[in-house]
Design a protein around this nucleic acid. Structure first.
Length: 515
DNA sequence: ATAGCATGCAAGGGA
DNA sequence: CCCTTGCATGCTATG
């Protein structure tokens, strides 16, 4: 099992009496509940990797809770925050910091959107007291639509509260499957409403009477959402005949009160909701147009491309965008090769170093070999969803200003190999050709793969565009053509709702949600 | 001065 | 003996 809390939480069942008792012990009310979430999340993280997440264990743990020594309730990310902070009661009492053993801190940073969503779900489940078992509060997460039976929870309090789907699957061919066609037939309109503020989205969203769930669209401005809904409707129409799991929309019915799939994840790094569709194979199905979120890049050093098979990651970006590591052994991440689709099992770990840490990827030897990466090449890491990542190798292209004349020609030939059309000329490419192909490549990739970028995404840094060629994939064109077109039709800054005071009333939204 | 990172090197394990 | 693993050291960038 990897470090995904969700995987553990799926199996957790807690005695309701223990929950109530714990909430009271932690101050009662919503405050107590938030503290409780912190305890549960910590418990889950501590038991991550164990196969037996006993009901007894967590219940007993909760029954022994005492009021926190520090008055820090659960804190979620706010503003442009990329990470959240959750009060860790154990750290406060034991002086232990999971992130840095040598500097006690009573907080655990929660960096992944999954973690925050897990907490969000947990919060809503407990808050709404949806009893799904006998005398117990089942905090099972809605399962993936392809993974068999599932319990879908309406956290708003609408009817129906809980939708049970029989085992036998919710796959595309199942009569229980909820796809675009089914949603279209529902007597409700996928209306456009104000999205919640990021803070609420990260932690306490989806409340409200009849509009909460309908806010869940990846676009966050009115214009962008109109476009998105238009696209989703079109997608639904098109998918009637050839329906695939990946076509399942992450839309919800505002009147019917159900999720078509699991609640969408709020990706804090970019400020969008991501589809939670999932491929049954290794990692996500990247043959489907998915939102790739740029996480980090690393210009490879000799030690990175040596035979050690490990790549040092920049600490700041690693801590900001990759899962929190409690143990130096780290976690195994499935990383799909951007070009080939090959699934690399890469260990993400750290070494203690002085008073800090060094983060690194291990088992990268084959990846480096397959792309023939050399010093100066780029390793780019994207996130898809559900803790799955995409690893991209980017060969360095020497521009005239940075490379020797000889290397210029060499890389021109290299480009020609990567771009069959260019090779028709049978002549070395000129600088303008390189720039042209690089820009073509960037634009194509962006369009085809629906990559969502941050400001520091190398593919969208104007001053770097000319330095970046196509990937080293033997057949980049074919690779790209695998992905149906889905363009980004709104700029990144439009996706950042917190910059638009007219769109969002942060304070009132927050007040409404947290009371 | 400090943190981050590249890399050297020692220890341990396996062939 | 070679390879892998993990740590220590030193260089460089930054505040």
């Amino acid at each position: 099992m990897d470090g995904n809390v969700r995987a553990v939480l799926k199996k957790v069942t807690v005695n309701e009496d223990s929950l109530s008792q714990a909430i009271q012990a932690l101050g009662g009310g919503e405050k107590g509940l938030k503290e409780l979430i912190g305890h549960i999340m910590l418990w889950v993280k501590q038991h991550n990797g164990e196969m037996d997440y006993g009901k007894t264990s967590l219940s007993q743990k909760l029954e022994k809770l005492h009021p926190p020594q520090m008055n820090h309730a659960l804190e979620f990310a706010s503003g442009k925050g990329i990470s959240g902070t959750v009060y860790n009661p154990n750290l406060a009492s034991e002086g232990y910091d999971q992130r840095n053993e040598k500097s006690p801190c009573p907080f655990v940073r929660v960096q992944s959107s999954e973690d925050l969503q897990d907490m969000n779900h947990l919060f809503q489940c407990i808050k709404s007291r949806r009893l799904m078992g006998e005398g117990g509060l089942d905090i099972n997460f809605p399962r993936d639509v392809h993974s068999g039976s599932g319990t879908f929870v309406d956290v708003r309090g609408s009817v129906p509260d809980v939708l049970h789907f029989p085992s036998g699957g919710m796959g595309p061919r199942s009569p229980n499957h909820i796809g675009p066609a089914m949603l279209q037939g529902m007597p409700c309109e996928l209306d456009i409403q104000r999205p919640l503020i990021p803070c609420a989205q990260a932690g306490l969203s989806f409340s409200g009477e009849h509009d909460g769930l309908s806010r869940i669209f990846t676009a966050t401005t009115r214009a962008a959402r109109r476009n998105q809904i238009s696209r989703q409707r079109q997608s639904g129409l098109q998918s009637n005949s050839t329906f695939t799991p990946s076509n399942t929309v992450t839309a919800v019915s505002s009147e019917c009160g159900l999720w078509s799939v699991a609640p969408p994840a709020w990706d804090m790094s970019v400020g969008v909701f991501l589809s939670r569709t999932q491929s049954p194979s290794c990692g996500p199905d990247i043959s489907d147009p998915k939102m790739l979120t740029f996480l980090l890049q690393k210009e490879l050093r000799p030690s990175d491309v040596g035979n050690l098979g490990r790549i040092i990651l920049p600490k700041k970006e690693a801590e900001a965008h990759l899962p929190i590591l409690a143990l130096r052994e780290g976690i195994l991440l499935q990383m799909e090769d951007f070009d080939s689709g090959h699934c690399w099992k890469i260990r993400y770990r750290f070494w203690p170093n002085n008073k800090s840490r060094m983060y690194l990827l291990e088992n990268t030897g084959e990846f480096v070999k397959s792309h023939r990466l050399e010093e100066g090449d780029l390793l780019v890491l994207y996130k898809i969803q559900e803790g799955n990542y995409v690893l991209r190798a980017q060969k360095k292209v020497h521009s005239e200003s940075s490379g020797a004349p000889g290397s210029q020609q060499k890389n021109a030939y290299s480009l020609a190999r990567d771009f069959p059309e260019a090779s028709k000329t049978e002549e070395p490419l000129k600088e303008k050709d390189i720039v042209g192909f690089a820009e073509w490549s960037c634009g194509k990739v962006n369009e085809e793969r629906n990559i969502l970028v941050r400001d520091d995404d190398p593919f969208f840094k104007d001053d770097q565009k000319h330095k970046i060629s196509s990937s080293f994939s033997p057949e980049p064109l074919q690779s790209l053509e695998r992905f149906p077109s889905l363009s980004i039709d709104f700029p990144l800054d439009e996706m950042m709702p917190w910059d638009d005071p007219d769109e969002f009333n942060t304070d009132s939204e927050l007040a409404e949600l947290v009371g």
